[in-house]
Design a protein around this nucleic acid. Structure first.
Lengths: 155, 155
DNA sequence: AGGCTATAGTTCTAAAATAGAACTGTCAAA
DNA sequence: TTTGACAGTTCTATTTTAGAACTATAGCCT
């Protein structure tokens, strides 16, 4: 039995991430965040998520410090949800998923969204590289070592 | 109401990806795959997933072409599960999640695993860059356009 | 031959999560 | 004073997941 409510205390970094963003709705909510959606009604109508679940997920994302709940109106008190730096740092995950979907789950209509890099002005794909040598990363070229935070089993 | 069983036919690339890998166990199973785990009992004992769910998830990953079910013994017939190219291409997603966990969900013990890039011999972090200019990608430097496969709403 | 072990599942019931719809409360504008 | 927008909460029904037990094949040991 895996206890999902304490999964963020696991020794494995992937488990900890999965504890926070490892469900369908959370990932779709985050996509909307990166598309500048910020308000409850906007999330709800664009995703067709039930209000109950949306409320739960937003609370959870706030609890984990991924979104901030910021008032945008006094009287009546209303709030919007804005990505923190911790949330913005999820961008590579979202982009990697979008790119995999484009590559492997596409259909004849072509991709729904194109991404322009403002810095260079071109349409791009995200590429994952090695921080040390800058080469494109492939699973088979990576060797895994135990780090300091590991007990014994696979972490 | 979101129909998860046909989510892979959605217009949004993220939805399509989420349809396949957007649940906790699937992501953890894939991590094990990248750590060279291949057999039912090995997945089960290292993840403590129920046998029922493991069976379901493996079937689904095979159905989507992410794993291949390869016989490794006749009499009795036994199979192991091996990443296809489509599955190997999920590596950036898994690595991005591991790296985010290391960065934002770590504890005082340090990271559980370290990654060595065989090509350059160094311990590295994964970095997401622009395919066109090679610069590190940040959400705020990306502008999103409609592509050919988009209907009208946000996709 | 009879029993033990390993592997890869399937089946069953109970508990938990999600879907779907309706309801609440606050305030502004008509 | 009524309507509408917004941001939720509450309720029941359905679906999914957890946990445990069971099945099936075959090798090995005595």
């Amino acid at each position: 039995m895996m206890k999902w409510d304490t999964l963020d205390e696991e020794q494995c970094s992937l488990s900890r991430t999965v504890a926070v963003v490892g469900d369908r709705w959370t990932l779709l909510i985050l996509r909307e965040c990166f598309l500048r959606v910020r308000r409850f009604e906007a999330f709800q109508s664009s995703l067709q998520i039930t209000r109950h679940l949306l409320s739960e997920r937003l609370k959870k994302l706030v609890r984990f410090g991924i979104l901030r709940r910021v008032p945008y109106s006094e009287a009546p008190k209303r709030y919007e949800y804005i990505l923190t730096q911790k949330g913005l740092d999820l961008y590579p995950i979202i982009m990697a998923m979008v790119h995999w979907g484009d590559t492997h789950m596409g259909d004849e209509r072509g991709r729904p969204l194109l991404h322009e890099h403002k810095t260079c002005g071109k349409l791009f794909d995200p590429v994952m590289v090695c921080s040390e040598c800058g080469e494109v990363l492939h699973a088979k070229q990576v060797h895994v070592h135990s780090g300091p935070g590991r007990k014994e089993a696979v972490g």
